[in-house]
């Protein structure tokens, strides 16, 4: 079974599953709303119709993928590239108000730099340092973005 599956067009299979999953989640949310009728649509009508359509298209993709032979290209998600970017930006979202723009951009830039296979710690440190100074000068002092340079968590 697994052997057979691995010879299918996995890109289409996965895309189909992804569309079906999103359709189910959003469709469930939409089903909580009043539906109305085609002539007098209520809040839930359009979202529910669209999620059903997305679900159908997902099924179509899935079937297409299962019917087709694999064309030989691998998908190959690379967690090495994904994870540092996600962690770095997450850090930004969660700490920028607390730590302030200066420290946060430093950490975000440094952590994201891990995503490259040509990562060198010292180069990344230097880049992060320059970048955080640049951002503070341009965004906070230059453009007046209402963010602290050093935030309240650092005793300011």
């Amino acid at each position: 079974m697994l052997g057979w599956l691995s010879r299918r067009n996995l890109k289409d299979v996965l895309a189909g599953l992804l569309f079906i999953a999103i359709a189910l989640i959003l469709g469930w949310q939409a089903s909580l709303l009043p539906f109305g009728t085609a002539m007098r649509m209520d809040a839930g009508y359009f979202p529910l119709v669209l999620s059903s359509l997305l679900g159908l298209l997902g099924v179509a993709n899935l079937i297409k993928g299962l019917v087709q032979e694999n064309d030989g290209t691998a998908i190959g998600f690379k967690l090495v590239a994904l994870a540092p970017i996600v962690v770095g930006t997450m850090f930004f979202a969660l700490t920028v108000r607390g730590l302030g723009l200066g420290p946060t951009t430093f950490v975000t830039a440094f952590v994201s730099a891990f995503a490259s296979r040509y990562f060198r710690p010292l180069v990344a440190l230097g880049l992060a340092g320059l970048l955080s100074v640049f951002c503070v000068v341009v965004f906070v002092y230059g453009l007046g973005v209402p963010l602290p340079v050093f935030g309240p968590w650092l005793g300011n």
């Binding site: 970017i85 770095g88 930004f92 951009t105 970048l131």
Partner: peptide
């Protein structure tokens, strides 16, 4: 590119 992309990431966030 490995020097460029951290800059883009930070600019996107801000």
């Amino acid at each position: 590119y490995h020097l460029l992309f951290p800059v883009i990431v930070v600019f996107c966030c801000i």
